[in-house]
Amino acid sequence: MDEELGDLTESDFILPPIKYEYLDHTADVQLHAWGDSLKEAFEQCGMAMFAYMTEMAYVQIREVHTIEANADDMIGLLYHFLDELLFLFSAEPFLICKKLVITEFNTEEFRIVCKCYGEEFKIGTHPQGTEVKAITYSAMQIIDEPKDHKFEVFVIIDI
């Protein structure tokens, strides 16, 4: 897949800091992500999900794919954004992402376009973590309080 590297520039290899954590939950796991903007919190949340599936240290950036998500409201947008990412992993191109960059974050028409950097998941290369079955709406929260500079999201993924 090295030919795909043609699309990648040096800055694409600069990794963002980690701004997510995994919270306690009986049967499933709750992702908690934050950032300097809601866009960043969304990106971080997506990366949190991927980091639950493998160990990120073993993942290299070799390919970039673009996904698009649409919804009727912000909660739905977060849901569909993550669902698209999960699909990217679950079927062709089986992409495990190390870095996500949202290039369009439309909070009026509820639309996201996101560049996903990573490589095809390969057993043997990538340690196997936990399988994510589905994204859920349960206890989903989006905290968007610019005046307090608080941008956080909470998502429970079914595993």
């Binding site: 699909f87 679950s90 079927a91 062709e92 089986f94 196997q128 936990t130 399988e131 079955k133 595993i159």
Partner: peptide, 17 residues
């Protein structure tokens, strides 16, 4: 189609969890 695309490569696998 999405479900079928997810399902096809995974048929005959045990899964995790």
């Amino acid at each position: 189609l999405r479900a079928k695309k997810r399902g096809l490569p995974q048929l005959g696998t045990l899964g995790a969890g």
